[in-house]
Nucleic acid binder design. Structure first.
Lengths: 336, 336
DNA sequence: CTGAAAGCGCTTACAG
DNA sequence: CTGAAAGCGCTTACAG
């Protein structure tokens, strides 16, 4: 690594004080003559000087860096959210640390703490759902925006999606198709808000007059338990109702169900109808393209970044509208 | 944001000098009494003091941060590589900045420059292929490791995959299946080494005696040009040879080909055989699961991080073995 | 075992 | 329009 030039070197080279160089670097051109300005510009250009952000951060205690903490970074949903966040941040000159909690509450805490040490300016968090208290504490000291998943009894700014609407669209669609039986295969809800919202709404609907003639059941499944899914599908297929359907709670479960159905030689929609959550990239290349509830994931990320950065820039301390809920949509394809 | 305590505050609180606190923070316990050590520990605990990494970085000019520059972050290949990088880095206490060049050489340069300003300790780069000169320059000043894509005439440490072997496996497999015609649909090679290596090997094979009886052709396609793919498939289907096959150069092209084939009502492997590069998560849930050349993507990332960090820790300035090539494998499924 | 002091590379209030 | 000087929060060689 070659010896970096410091502001002092440049000051000497240019024959001015470091103060003037600093002013130049910060674009305060009105407070210097055109000559010195041009002179400094040429010196900097000539020697390829690059100021140290580290030193600057230390001095002004602002790092122009945001930590993004995702419960599970490596699923398509997170990827899209990340894309949105990244886009807005880079537009505004912010850099992001992307961190993966790997679905571990413990790791989520560790990683958030590490990031405070890095002196990030703020946090965007897609929480594991198990650190409400901890995160509320962090939010007292740092600007925080929640993405996708809410935290109860807090007014931390949050961007999410209309999950109740999502499950409602799916059920209504299936009802129109005369389904007599709807099984909702949801990932285990834990304290994860979107899952709970969907499950709650699903149960609520099962009590409504409109759907009284439908057998509706919610079954929590983990993608890791392939056997459970298999056993369920076997029983499900054997059960007598003839207009059966499944709603899958995310892309990974959809994938598993399709895979297992394949192994069992079950056909969709011949043996049962299916609606998935999340419009994954492979949804439309299946033998029968999958009907899905699509979420505006990219936009969720973009909005979250916007919320955080406008907060950092003090554009809106008036924290009305702390909760932003984006609509979802049903994309009808061939599995229904 | 509440007022952070500084090392000075803690020093006063503990009744010692900042030097001693600093020694404590750096684990130099042998140079202090057990009493002061315990005392400091309790004070730090009590006040929840967190030292500033920024200040530390400025002082020791080391940020324990690595910049990862990916040509295109949002494809499954990159995701997996990233996973490997992240894993190793977090094991070693390094944090990573993940940056997306968005397939733009211009952006790649900008972003690398931005990162030098952030004073990262080193770079892991999956290059767009258009910045050889620039990156060689960076490598003179910073530790750099290349992932996936090589740079010509340089000895920058690189981790990649045996691409020639990959295409060879595919072609040999197709040959054993008595294919008379093999079309290799590769993304445009540009200066991207893996693509060039595959194309070169493919052309070389087409000249070998073993494959003399096969019609082999390489066709560059962009995933963006759906029409081109469609037109190709139409002509391809009409052509007379009866044992036809297609090799697709990455997951995105595989996806497109399958989609378009579907629209055209062509069946795989009935109408043509198909081998894809990259074992994407959806490859096995298709009506006919896809035969693929699988790359050890995770391992590529992991190794790259290892290479870079051991370099940072000066474990190996002896730069023998600067090029690490991992093997690929053929996973036979139902499209062949 | 411990402290005083210099210095990392910047920014900024103050003075001129 | 410009500079001298203090200070951001650490680390470390030196001295004791």
């Amino acid at each position: 690594m070659k010896n970096k030039l410091s502001i002092k070197d440049i000051a000497e080279l240019a024959g001015v004080s470091t103060a003037t160089i600093s002013r130049y670097l910060n674009g305060k051109y009105q407070s210097m003559s055109v000559d010195t300005r041009k002179n400094i510009a040429s010196i900097i250009e000539k020697f390829g000087y690059q100021p140290s952000n580290i030193a600057r951060s230390l001095r002004i205690s602002e790092s122009k860096t945001i930590a993004v903490i995702m419960a599970d970074i490596f699923n398509p949903y997170s990827m899209d959210v990340l894309k949105g966040i990244e886009e807005f941040c880079s537009e505004k000159g912010y850099t992001i640390f992307i961190c993966d909690a790997k679905n571990s509450a413990q790791r989520e805490r560790t990683i958030i703490e590490e990031m405070t040490v890095k002196r990030v300016d703020g946090f965007i968090i897609n929480t594991t759902g198990e650190n409400d208290y901890f995160i509320k504490g962090i939010a007292l000291e740092y600007p925080v925006v929640l993405v996708g998943r809410k935290i109860k009894n807090s007014n931390i700014p949050t961007v999410s999606v209309d999950n109740a609407q999502g499950i409602r669209l799916a059920v209504e669609h299936l009802n129109e198709l005369k389904c007599k039986k709807i099984i909702f295969l949801s990932p285990p809800a834990g304290h994860i808000s979107p899952r709970n919202e969907r499950i709650t709404e699903f149960k609520k609907m099962s009590g409504e007059d409109n759907f009284a003639h439908i057998e509706m059941k919610c079954l929590p499944v983990s993608v890791l338990e392939e056997n459970v899914i298999k056993q369920f599908l076997i029983n499900f297929h054997r059960s007598d109702s003839d207009m059966k359907s499944i709603i899958t709670g995310n892309g990974q479960i959809s994938l598993k169900v399709i895979q297992v159905a394949k192994e069992l030689k079950l056909s969709i929609p011949e043996d049962f109808l299916m609606v998935g959550f999340d419009d994954t990239d492979w949804a439309h290349i299946l033998r029968k393209p999958l009907t899905v509830v699509a979420q505006p994931t990219y936009k969720v990320g973009y909005s979250a970044a916007k919320k955080l950065i406008s907060q950092l820039m003090k554009e809106n301390d008036a924290d009305e509208n702390y909760l932003e809920i984006l609509p979802v949509s049903l994309i009808k394809r061939e599995t229904t």
